[in-house]
């Protein structure tokens, strides 16, 4: 569904130094520099896949999404989405994709969302029957019924995002680009959005490429992740494998029937947390079996669980490694 080969996107940008004097100088002389927003990345995504796109701010995620949706021309490389070259912006291509940006909205601010729906129905030339069916389905899935008649400006951020999603999916696109769709939403609304995206993906077999700051989004939605840093693709594979590779260690969480000395825990591995009758110990993959056995035999255990390190930490470590290399 999506084929990307050796994609490069470079910009020449004007550096704007702070301060009045510098600004005055730049009236006459503008220093430029080349920013390699995307620097030789290749990947391919099959129809119906859900892929998470991870990376720190400015890594090139949004640029890649904009190239894939035809807004930006690649500097170099070949891109194919749904059988079309995105930059041609052919009608048949635009009919098959959608881009949802958590920070920007297409809903008309002072009119009810239903008005934007009608507008998009006309623009995408959706047959009446199909429109009504899709709308009914989206309304049910997202519980939009009470929202459709209120002016957009009166909706909460979460309600607005639900309507944004609906309006973006009205033409039943085959490819969904979601750029930070859950930004600023509360936890339950994030879960709603996630659930909906998965539902849409399964029901219509649509391909989903999602960027998010919230690891939860990616963990819950995307069996496959791609990690981009400084314009380069540094990982492409399953989330599980990524975690194993970056942080081969495990976390052993023990709950005790009575407090123990820190010393007793340190014999198991590195102590991350230690509070009265509860402790978190970091253990390498290889030493895990031994450590579990030793804990069972030496500690007054109430309960013992083994977990992967938290995703946020995995990411932090991943990018820290990238920087060091």
């Amino acid at each position: 569904m999506i084929e990307v080969e050796h994609l490069r996107k470079w910009y020449r940008v004007h550096r704007r130094p702070p301060g009045l004097a510098a600004a005055l100088r730049s009236l006459f002389h503008r220093p430029y520099e080349t920013v390699k927003a995307v620097d030789d990345i290749s990947f391919s995504i099959a129809a119906g896949e859900r892929v998470g796109f991870l990376g720190p701010n400015g890594a090139g995620k949004t640029t890649t999404l904009k190239v894939l949706s035809g807004l930006l021309h690649p500097t170099e490389g070949r891109v194919l989405v749904a059988g079309s070259t995105p930059q041609d912006r052919a009608r048949s291509f635009l009919q098959q994709i959608t881009l949802v940006m958590g920070q920007k909205q297409q809903l008309l601010w002072d009119l009810p969302p239903s008005e934007t729906f009608l507008l998009n129905r006309a623009i995408y030339d959706i047959p009446k029957k199909e429109y009504e069916a899709t709308l009914a389905e989206l309304t049910a899935l997202l519980e939009l019924a009470p929202l459709l008649g209120k002016p957009t400006r009166q909706l909460s951020l979460g309600e607005r995002m639900k309507c944004e999603l609906a309006v973006a999916l009205l033409h039943r696109p085959k490819v969904l680009f979601l750029d930070e769709p859950t930004i600023g939403l509360d936890v339950s609304m994030q879960a709603t959005v996630r659930g909906f995206v998965r539902e849409y993906n399964q029901r219509f077999g649509a391909t989903v490429l999602l960027t998010s700051h919230y690891m939860e989004d990616v963990a819950a939605l995307c069996p496959r992740v791609m990690v981009i840093d400084k314009g380069k693709l540094i990982y492409d594979g399953s989330l599980h494998e990524l975690v194993r590779r970056v942080r081969p260690d495990k976390r052993m969480i023990v709950r005790l029937t009575r407090p123990v000395e820190r010393r007793d825990l340190e014999s198991l591995g590195a102590v991350v947390e230690h509070r009265d009758a509860e402790a978190v110990v970091q253990v390498t993959q290889d030493a895990l079996q031994g450590a579990v056995a030793r804990a069972l035999s030496t500690l007054p255990l109430h309960d013992l669980t083994v977990e992967d390190p938290p995703l946020e930490e995995v990411m932090r470590d991943l990018f820290a490694q990238g920087r060091a290399a």
């Binding site: 704007r16 301060g19 009045l20 600004a23 005055l24 730049s26 009236l27 503008r30």
Partner: peptide, 15 residues
């Protein structure tokens, strides 16, 4: 005033 001035100067064409 200083902030206004720097802001104004930033937009080269405008100036």
């Amino acid at each position: 005033l200083r902030a206004s001035l720097s802001l104004a100067v930033q937009y080269r064409l405008d100036f």
